[in-house]
Design a binder for these strands. Sequence first.
DNA 1: TAAAAATTTTAGACAAAGCTAAATCTTTCA
DNA 2: TGAAAGATTTAGCTTTGTCTAAAATTTTTA
Lengths: 221, 221
Amino acid sequence: METHAEEDYLKAIYSISENGPAAVSTKEVAEYINSKPSSVTDMIQRLSAKKLVDYKKYKGFTLTKKGKEKALLIIRKHRLWELFLVEHLNFSWSEVHEVAEQLEHVSSPLLVNRLDAFLNYPVRDPHGDIIPDINGNLRDDDTIVLTEVPNKKTCFVTWIKDSSSEFLTYLDQVNIGLDTEIKILESYPYDRSIKVKIPRKSAITLSEKVCKNLYVRLNEN
Amino acid sequence: METHAEEDYLKAIYSISENGPAAVSTKEVAEYINSKPSSVTDMIQRLSAKKLVDYKKYKGFTLTKKGKEKALLIIRKHRLWELFLVEHLNFSWSEVHEVAEQLEHVSSPLLVNRLDAFLNYPVRDPHGDIIPDINGNLRDDDTIVLTEVPNKKTCFVTWIKDSSSEFLTYLDQVNIGLDTEIKILESYPYDRSIKVKIPRKSAITLSEKVCKNLYVRLNEN
DNA sequence: TAAAAATTTTAGACAAAGCTAAATCTTTCA
DNA sequence: TGAAAGATTTAGCTTTGTCTAAAATTTTTA
């Protein structure tokens, strides 16, 4: 049985380690969950005793297999609730996160799985993030980063990696959102920007920074 | 901002005081929430400092107006979630309670009110209990206890007070449930039992104990 | 009505989870 | 390479909420 606080730590460690393979530091976690490095050390030692993280003093820590599984099941709950709130209770993107943070700690496998069924076994949450399945596995699909799409190909946005409001505002301005169709017209190796076409809009140029935060599925064929 | 434990105490005190107007004792609360009288004293003193209960040492305690409001808002959440679980996630009566105990502590007025709207502003939960409204008011209706229905009258079950599985099993056996139509055929003052008729069933006799736990609405006229 | 029984409160401990300040490692770079 | 600087850990304290055992109070009953 894990406590609320322990679950928050597992989720934080998982999210931080998605950015790279390195061990996670107390400082990173403290910043992530708005706490202090000394508090993090305390908790990491508890999690280490429970075999949820591998920990070497002064060297950082990583999730064990068991810790990673638990983290993914929490993320599963979070994303299913987010989808429920947006699709059925008319929540907007900005209202959803805080409430899902609370709902993700409700412990009832029956509830999660019934909710999954109610939502029709969705693969992605409202942000396009993949929802781990009942066993905590990430169902991978054919999503790739926009920078990897070849010239002249058409693709569809499936995931928006940077969920900052600045980026979302920018995307609104250029008429890009989840499922938007994008055709690559030309790429400029000099600064790695690309020119693209969105149906019924004039062509625009996207910077490397933008492309790196847009993930897409290639048109079938 | 109330904590999880404080909310459980408020709800317990409210539920216990529904049985009568007397002040509530530490022993009663301890039994209700599976705890010890000394722990209850501690918490009551905290709640008293927050003006959520009126407390006189050795004399028991009652909810203040503020305490009662908070209790009713928690009960509102509990009952709305129960209804959601039964109506939309296919939970059975017996599975519902434990999960609703957790969901009732999720703190988001927006969430509760959106859920209320999603369920179409229901008046009663799956047990027939009245759902307090957005201001914590109990919408009273024309429900009365079965013992008060006059001879020869017909009525409909609206609320099952005793929700023990023993009672629910008994009700199944005699084909009584929420909304069942019951006609009073005859009453026996000797032991206060009554003979009743349910459509398409043979007449049966209900003991005083059973009648006291069945609440009904009189047929219009 | 006074002693026994029951209930309630206090006192002292404990665990979880957080914090600050001080001590201890690592890393950096002059 | 050997101080500084930076990061991490430890030590000690705080709050919430629980418990047991002992003390205080109320209720029961003989």
